[in-house]
Design a protein around this nucleic acid. Structure first.
Length: 441
RNA sequence: GGCGGAUUUCCCAAGCGGUCAAAGGGAGCUGACUGUAAAUCAGCCGCGUAAUGCUUCAGAGGUUCGAAUCCUCUAUCCGCCA
């Protein structure tokens, strides 16, 4: 099960050792100093999450897990949600962002906060505390910004930041707003230092430039050296950014990315990645990971490591019940024979639990269908296809299955017998994408 | 401020008045093979409630029977000169 362990239980001498081994430390301002900090008296640390989407994704999960490790070791987490920075947007290599409307950012801000709360306990001796940088940034006037904050930043330093330099050299250039992002983030660090004595910031390695912008500021203004620690950017075997599936980000919100799909995403990781991922994304003890590493070598086809990875991460993110449902659903599909008829009604229902879709009103439900409905239309309702015409194309290339039997005809229609136990019809696109139709009159 | 070049469907990139929904590659989807992997091969790949249907080639106008392709203006980017 996805139990969170501290470094002793996991088989390490210190928190620093564990993070090192798990590959959670890519860069830090001063590794010796970082080791002392991590293994010393409890400190307050923070990590920021910008509301640029309605949900966090697996990329953010690395940060959450790092934060959780530190928390388990007794340090004090601050989760910053960027209500202010999210209105500006950090510079990306791909080009200037489109600004999101204020009310949308506000909505996303509260969604992210709720999500983060599920990963970091708010009880106990060192509970997570939530902060929104809009608090101190939202009311700042242009004069305050330039006099109190801007005056402490040097153009040379700001221009030399990697992402800024690259954007300046790109055809598109960079706007003053995105260029100034690093100033806001630097100021956040200072604010948290003043309020909470926060001395360590975590973040993704691609955020290095933004993370470090607070260091000089705090040294200059308060005369204190604080630290930054980044987690590596996770990439796949091809060196591509990790966490894309079917062209979409792998979201942590079950309404945007079902627990079943989430489970499958981890289960499908290639052999040369799975051990690295087990280290980084799970809390499994060292000895257990080493045992699985041996399994991959001796019997790769059994996929023991993938199974462990998928279970651990899915149960951590979505809970054990949803994870078990994903396993059941996977088993009835990929298990020997994939015999759906043999499943008991309650087993079937449990297995399908993780496949519910957003009902558009904040709840989760199954798509409704009745005998006589066209399969292509039902597939759209179940969320497997964007449109009937996309469904048609997939049927034509032989990629649509009703209860594990290939659908041959675009015009096929659901029959009474297609509803297992008179209730559910299981529609599949390709090997892994599943959708459920519940019979309703 | 002046002169020249660029802007094509998710990305790169052909096209230079009809045969253009637009070559090729990448990404993505599906199939075969397999270990629910990788590699390989094949199909699909603007949208679509499939229709002699709809909307595209930076934006707005214009020339023409007909424009991504020609003209004018606008925007943005890149050079060179002031």
């Amino acid at each position: 099960m996805a139990k969170v362990t501290d470094f002793k239980e996991a088989g390490f001498d210190s928190l620093f050792d564990e993070l090192k081994w798990r590959g959670l430390i890519a860069q830090s301002t001063d590794e010796t100093e970082l080791e002392k900090t991590l293994d010393g008296e409890p400190v307050t640390y923070y990590c920021g999450f910008d509301p640029t989407a309605p949900s966090l994704h697996v990329g953010n999960l690395v940060q959450l897990i790092s934060m959780r490790h530190l928390q388990a070791a007794g340090h004090h987490p601050l989760a910053l949600v960027g209500g202010a920075t999210g209105l500006i947007g950090d510079p990306r290599q791909s080009g200037e962002r489109t600004l999101n409307p204020r009310n949308v950012v506000e909505e996303w801000t509260s969604r992210l906060a709720a999500q983060i709360g599920r990963f970091l306990p708010a009880q106990g001796g060192n509970p997570v505390r939530f902060i929104n940088n809009y608090e101190w940034t939202g009311s700042m006037t242009a004069i305050d910004f330039l006099r109190d904050v801007g005056k402490n930043f040097r153009m040379g330093t700001m221009l030399s930041k990697d992402i800024v330099a690259r954007r300046l050299n790109s055809e598109e250039g960079i706007s003053f707003a995105e260029f100034s992002y690093q100033v806001l983030q630097g100021n956040d660090f200072l604010e948290l230092f003043d309020r909470y004595d926060c001395r360590l910031q975590l973040g993704g390695n691609d955020q290095w430039g933004n993370l470090t912008s607070g260091l000089d500021l705090i040294r200059k203004v308060r005369g204190v050296n604080v630290n930054v620690m980044t987690s590596p950017l996770i990439t796949d075997s091809q060196g591509k950014k990790f966490g894309k599936s079917e062209g979409n980000a792998v979201w942590l919100d079950p309404a945007m990315f079902s627990p079943y799909r989430f489970y499958q995403f981890w289960f499908n990781q290639p052999d040369d990645q799975v051990i690295k991922l087990l280290k980084t994304f799970t809390f499994l003890p060292k000895a257990e990971v080493e045992r699985l590493e041996e399994e991959v070598k001796t019997d790769p086809g059994a996929r023991e490591a993938q199974k462990a990875l998928a279970w651990e991460v899915t149960s951590y993110v979505h809970g054990e019940r949803a994870a078990q449902g994903a396993i059941d659903a996977s088993g009835s599909l990929f298990g020997r024979g994939g015999n759906l008829d043999d499943l008991d009604e309650d087993v079937l229902e449990g297995a399908l639990e993780g496949l519910k879709i957003d009902d558009g009103q904040g709840g989760m439900t199954f798509a409704a269908a009745a005998a006589g409905d066209r399969v292509v239309e039902a597939g759209v309702k179940a969320g497997l296809f964007k449109s009937v015409s996309e469904a048609r194309k997939t049927v034509n290339s032989g990629g649509v299955y009703l209860n594990n039997t290939r659908v041959a005809d675009q015009e096929a229609v659901l029959a009474d017998k297609d509803f297992l136990h008179g209730r559910f019809a299981l529609l599949r696109r390709g090997k892994k994408a599943l959708g459920v139709l519940e019979r309703r009159a």
